[in-house]
């Protein structure tokens, strides 16, 4: 069964049609990259997957059930910026997810439970290469390290779906290559399902097992908002090619 099932999905704000008649299936384990010109609805689509927005019309299922209409633990998110908790250290930022899950009232663990959460968080941080800065505050980290932390935060909850919203858009090219290697490695090791929005076509081709291109097919110059975007290309990418590239 598909993880995500979408049939004849529409999204409009008033008269402004953003997405029209989208149909799509995403299976567990896929790495989907979403590309398209700005304003073509790929971010809106991601927000719908996240639960921040809901569709206007159509079938929109997560594991066969209607999508939860607010953000939940099944779906992790990594934004481009601003999603780290500035008052917590690197370690506490990752521990927070474990603590929130196990302590519904205080959101804080003590004693042995805290120690276990700490160990789990440290292992996660070492996996993303942040083992040496556990007690720094996020503001003391570089942009690339901040994104590593944001990924670790999400992964510690073992989400069924990991959403990436232009996560590497603000990084230097060299750092970006490191981050690509990291995310592919994590994706493989943890059997993640990833949906990633990017404006970098090369990145989309390089990372994904499937590339989805969003664009408007019809355009009425008199009423630019009358038609929404569709998926114009749905390109499966060969994994072998990726493996090769990875080994380079």
């Amino acid at each position: 069964m598909s993880l995500i099932t979408i049939k004849n999905l529409w999204k409009r704000y008033g008269d402004n049609v953003v997405l029209e008649n989208l149909s799509l299936e995403i299976k567990a384990g896929e790495f989907c990259t979403l590309v398209g010109p700005s304003g073509c609805g790929k971010s809106t689509f991601l927000k719908m997957l996240l639960g921040e927005e809901s569709p206007s019309k159509g079938v929109f299922l997560f594991e066969g059930k209607p999508f939860p209409s607010e953000p939940s633990v099944e779906r992790g998110i990594v934004f481009q910026r601003y999603s780290l908790f500035s008052h917590l250290s690197v370690l506490e930022n990752v521990m927070l997810g474990i603590e929130l899950g196990k302590s519904p009232f205080l959101g804080k663990l003590f004693g042995a439970a805290k120690k276990a959460a700490r160990e789990e968080a440290v292992a996660m941080l070492e996996a993303v290469g942040l083992g040496s800065v556990l007690h720094h505050y996020p503001s003391e980290l570089s942009g690339g390290m901040q994104q590593r932390l944001s990924i670790a935060q999400s992964l510690v909850k073992k989400p069924k779906l990991l959403l990436l919203d232009e996560p590497f858009g603000a990084l230097d090219p060299g750092i970006r290559a490191d981050m690509h290697a990291l995310i592919l490695d994590l994706w493989k090791k943890n059997n993640l399902t990833v949906v990633m929005v990017t404006h970098d076509l090369h990145e989309g081709f390089y990372l994904g097992t499937r590339l989805l291109v969003f664009d408007k097919v019809r355009n009425d110059p008199q009423a630019p908002n009358a038609f929404g975007a569709k998926i114009t290309y749905d390109i499966p990418l060969l994994r072998e090619k990726k493996e090769e590239k990875n080994d380079e």
Binding site: L50, E52, E70, P71, S72, V73, R75, G76, I77, F79, R81, Y82, S83, L84, F85, S86, H87, L96, G97, E99, L100, G101, S103, P104, F105, L106, G107, K108, S150, Q153, S154, K157, P159
Partner: peptide, 27 residues
């Protein structure tokens, strides 16, 4: 308050209450 942090906290399992006591009030 950055919306990204609020959404992130929800995806980490925060309720309105734990969001307030662990994220908002300390900040």
């Amino acid at each position: 308050f950055p919306k990204e942090q609020l959404i992130k906290a929800q995806t980490l399992g925060a309720s309105s209450w734990t969001l307030a006591v662990r994220i908002i009030i300390p900040q």
